[in-house]
Write a protein that binds this DNA or RNA. Structure first.
Lengths: 226, 226
DNA sequence: GGCGGGATTGGAACGTCGTTCCATTTTGTC
DNA sequence: GACAAAATGGAACGACGTTCCAATCCCGCC
């Protein structure tokens, strides 16, 4: 008989999918540093050895979790009329995903050769082609866009790494940016005139708008070489 | 008497500068992962406790080392006629610094609030102003440029993290890119047409030229909003 | 010119992590 | 029901960042 009624153990059976799901929960709830094989084993009420049967190592775990999040972005964001519009929605999808799961930002920027990045390359690349960028310039154009995205991804992850999980996120962001702005405004005026000026805008800026502005800047650059 | 001839111990006295110098040597020679307080203590023939007397923690050490490298870039790269030229030379200075010290890339992208990044912001920001970008757009323009730089910085650091220090660097890069290209070319043609096409260009591309092309793309975008 | 106390040193010890190892249990097959 | 393979859980390993502390050094003062 091949199809038996699953026994107790079969029901709670470990699988890569269940492990990744639990990992994402820990990452979202308690932050990047809280994901350890011990914490994961405790949450799944098993041992770390059992986890290694399904997952090669921590990098495999993080890459799979990241791909899981990014896959939703690239498959959902195929709407929009113009290529610019599609790129914008896709980029905002990445932004929102990183906002919801800041650890994704860290993982993307730390490991640019994982499949999640290939997904993004493909999604962006097709639109860059549709935009009419000449073939010889496509490689540089797409990787520039991607580097910008990965760069901001890393920055948001760095911000999230700082803040204590038991605090209100918006409040922390505000006080943190104000602290940085205060530090910047105390810099030597002759050595750092520009940064001092930036310090006035820093606390009020909107991350999402900043991100979109960067995308638009690069898109504008692409139009000029079309 | 205040000025004595330094004794033996005084001569080899530990100092933050000597520690950072030794750290940079380890990082350059053996890579990011080789820098541990144990290795550092061994090289300085002392104990880890003595190092902590001069350095707050590992992040302090890495930030100081990074600033040491970046400071040379921002102070040297004030040449050039047009703002575009200055930004280009400065960006290439960052590229060359990261090429010579790949761990700098990792540290920059992992910790965007350290002083080294402020240095870059100031250097780039002044030129963006000179470029005639309207004031309300300067913040987004400068941070976009910075995100692109940090993004590529992280990517190069990720590449360097992969390769075994006892191998020829160029040779490793070549075979690594060829491996990735081969993997990409084996992807499903209907799902990944663009990445498959990229795989043909990937192994031959020049990192420095790719970096400069990205900078030029963003600069072109800035001109369009001037 | 010795001496007291702060500055500095070297190395042991602590707690945590990713990973490996292995004895044990569970599952599917004849 | 027995046997091999798949899967499990937890102990153990080695390395790391960091802390702690006894020992040593150096400087200003009597």
């Amino acid at each position: 008989m091949k199809n038996k009624i699953p026994t107790e153990r079969r029901t709670n059976a470990l699988s890569k999918a269940r492990i990744v799901e639990a990992a994402i929960e820990i990452l979202d709830r308690e932050g990047e540093d809280a994901l350890t094989f011990r914490a994961l084993a405790a949450r799944l009420s098993t041992g770390s050895g059992a986890i290694y049967w399904h997952v090669a190592d921590k990098n495999d775990l993080l890459a799979t979790a990241t791909d899981h999040v990014i896959a939703r972005v690239t498959t959902n964001a195929v709407r929009g009329s113009t290529p610019q519009e599609v790129i914008r929605t896709m980029a905002l999808g990445v932004f929102d995903a990183i906002h919801a799961h800041p650890w994704v930002g860290g993982q993307l920027s730390r490991n640019p050769w994982q499949y999640a990045v290939v997904r993004l390359l493909e999604g962006v690349g097709g639109q860059v082609q549709a935009l009419g960028v000449p073939e010889h310039a496509q490689f540089n154009a797409v990787t520039a866009l991607m580097s910008f995205i990965l760069g901001l991804a890393g920055q948001y992850a760095a911000g999230a790494r700082l803040f204590p999980p038991d605090m209100d996120r918006a409040a922390f962001r505000k006080t943190f940016l104000e602290t940085v702005a205060a530090r910047w405004s105390r810099l030597d005026p002759t050595e750092h005139p520009f940064v001092r000026q930036l310090s006035k805008v820093l606390p009020e800026h909107d991350d999402r708008e900043q991100f979109l502005a960067g995308i638009d800047l690069i898109l504008a650059g692409m139009e000029s070489i079309r």
